[in-house]
Every structure is written in C-alpha cells, then in structure tokens.
Design a protein around this nucleic acid. Structure first.
Lengths: 206, 206
DNA sequence: ACCTGAACACCGTTCAAGT
DNA sequence: ACCTGAACACCGTTCAAGT
C-alpha cells in the first residue's frame, strides 16, 4: 500500500490519482463548492503548486472527477438493460429507479455532474465521451422497447428524453431538499421513483 | 433617480435594495458562484463591510435573491391557471411550458434556486414560504383537472410531483448544457417542452 | 521531470473606531 | 444607527528557483 518510490524527494509515484482521491473525499464530505486545490494538495502531502503539474487548473480536476460519476451511471444503466432484457418496460423502469437511487446516494457527485459547476464550454473530450456513453446506455434501454413495439412514439430520442427528464427532475428535487418531508428514507425514495415511473409509462390522463 | 439623502456621509437611503440589485446583476452576468460580497459592496459604492449591516452573511443575501425567483415562478404558474381555467389539461401543459421557458430565460437564477447553492438547513422563513407558494400554485393547476376527473390518479401530490419532475428535469438538462445540440433556439426549447408534456399526459406506452 | 516557496490579487468575516 | 479601514485566515494562479 506504500508509495512506489523509496526516495524522500518525491513523495508520489502517482500524484495525479492521489489528488483525485483527495478531491473525491472533499466532494463527499463538503460538496463541490468546498473543494480547494490547496487543501487537495495538502491531503496528498504536497505543496499547493504541485497540482498544476497534473491539471491545468481547478476546472480540469473537477472535470476528471465528474468523469468518474458518468462512468458509474453508464454502467448502472447497462446493468438494468442486461437484467431485464426480456421485459423492456421493466428495464426502463428499473433504469429509472437506479438513476434516482444513484443520484441520492451520491448527491454531491450528481451536483458536480449536472449542477452547473463545470463550465459548459471547454469540456474535456473524456468528459464529453463519458456523458454520451451514459446517454447511449439509456437509448439502448429504449431500443429494447422499440424492438417490441411497446411505445406510442417511434422516435427513440423523444422517448429517451421524456424518461431522462422525469428521473433527472425527481433526482434533482430530492437532492436539493425540495421534497425533504416526503423523501427522508430510502424506502420513500424508491416509492417516489416508482410513482413517477408509473406516471411516465401510463400518463397522467385517465 | 438620485439617492434620497443629500448627506455625503451615508450614500444610501436603501442600501439593502442596492445590494440586492447589484447581486442580481452579477448573478445574470456571471452566475451564482461569481457573486462576491466585496464586489456587490463596490457596485453599491460602499465599503466591503457595509453589507453586514443588512445581511448576516453571504448566504442570507443569496437566499433573499432566490426569493425573487420563486415569486416570479409562482406568479407565472398562477397566470397559466387563470388563462386556461376552462381546460385543465391545457392549463397544466401551459404551466409546464412556462416553467421551462422561465428556467431557460433565467438559468443563473434557476441554478441559484435549485442547484444546491443554498444550504439545505437554515433556510429563511421567507424563502421557504415563497417555495411553498410556488408549489401550491402547481397543486392548484392539478386541482383544476381533478375537479373534472381527467386524471387517472386521484392523489394530487402524485400527479403534481410527476409533472414537476418532468418539467424540472427538462429545464435542468437544458440549462446545464446536456441538450446543447437539440435545445439551441427558443423554438426548439418550446418543442422539447411540448414533447415531454405530451409524454407526461399520455404516457410512453402504446 | 517534478516539486517548492514566495508573491499577487482576490475572497468572507470580524471588530475597533469614527460620525 | 450606519459605515469605514485594518486585520485575519483563507483562495487560485504564476513563476523563479531548487533537485
């Protein structure tokens, strides 16, 4: 578990990953806004200027961190597709539930990914790719249903966007504390996700 | 247009509102994260310690600013209800479109209101009341439809939450730039809102 | 190559002091 | 009552200098 180098001069063989690990700790503990490059450097046992050898600026470190979140999300959605391949409606519903549960379990990460923390321009290629990969995982869930003809609308984008909006909106409302009274426990959150999932599938109208 | 006082000693009869106006300017120009109390004070022509006479800390100023946004939102939803009182489905759809348009027109304000900028605890009474007032305006839109029996689910909370989640999610995805390609123009945004509104009303399933 | 330490221009917040 | 100016402990970023 010790560092790969025995020299005293350079404390790290892999400072970049040490910095990312420290940043994720701060993210979990105190949120994206409380991540300071100087504290991340201190956690890694290095001077406050050292991070600039590995990241152009703070933004680049935050983008690298958000990438982890998008990878996690894409994987979870693909798992839903694999698990319910025989029942495409259940696959989409389960994917939605998973989306909300993941967001609520990692609220700070979700806010970093979707909360306007990162600049809209200058997004790194890797971040863009991981975001698109997560969206593609959703599209594949939709395609399962389209292949069986279960959806009213044949446009995969329309169907995917409606599902994404519904589950994303519920997630953000819970995370931001707008539903504090009715989303306190994990059971309540699952029920909320199922409720809006049901409305998504069958519609509000009689 | 000049200050209400002729004295040179105190530049403001209403420093509190001058500070709020300056903060809103910074919010629009550069986002919530870029609001600094020191710059707000400079915009009002006052020392950097003066704001502390009117706000306990930066958080309190930001909360006062977010209150304005919630009032605007509540009013817009009530207008939809008044305009389409005879057609409750249209009222809810129009309310949803308005929600998205308002969010896209004021992205920085929306992120201040819903983006995890404000602390979840210590929310001022006024902010909480304005948030609840906006939610009540949504519930009244739902009640119009319940009175005519148009909804499958008789629970007003379930219906309201599904509608809110859908429109809130779409708004946040657009604002955060996740739909950059397909939400560039105002017309495209209206079409997206109508598309998910249609899915909300009729459901994804055939 | 990789890191340090000083420096610069910022922050939020506090507090004695002025009028 | 209302505001100022100095002070403190932080920031992100840059850069000459060390090994």
């Amino acid at each position: 578990m010790a560092g790969p180098s025995e020299h005293k001069d350079y404390h790290h063989g892999d400072l970049r990953n040490s910095l990312l690990a420290g940043a994720e700790t701060l993210l979990r503990q105190r949120g994206a806004a409380a991540i300071s490059l100087r504290e991340v450097a201190k956690l890694a046992g290095v001077s406050h200027a050292a991070p600039y050898r590995h990241f152009r600026d703070k933004e680049e470190l935050l983008q690298a961190l958000a990438t982890v979140g998008f990878k996690r999300l894409a994987q979870a959605l693909r798992d839903s597709g694999a698990k319910y391949a025989h029942d495409p409606a259940a696959a989409l519903l389960h994917g939605g539930e998973t989306y909300v549960e993941l967001a609520v379990q990692h609220p700070q990460m979700t806010q970093l990914m979707f909360g306007g923390v990162l600049s809209k321009e200058n997004r790194s290629l890797e971040l863009a790719e991981c975001g698109e990969s997560a969206f593609e995982a959703l599209l594949e869930l939709v395609d399962l249903g389209l292949a069986r003809g279960i959806y009213r609308n044949g446009d995969r984008m329309d169907t995917a966007l409606a599902a994404w909006s519904m589950m994303h909106g519920l997630s953000m409302l819970i995370i931001d504390g707008q539903l504090r009274d009715s989303a306190a426990t994990q059971d309540q959150i699952r029920d909320l996700a199922r409720g809006v999932g049901n409305a998504l599938m069958h519609g509000l109208l009689r």
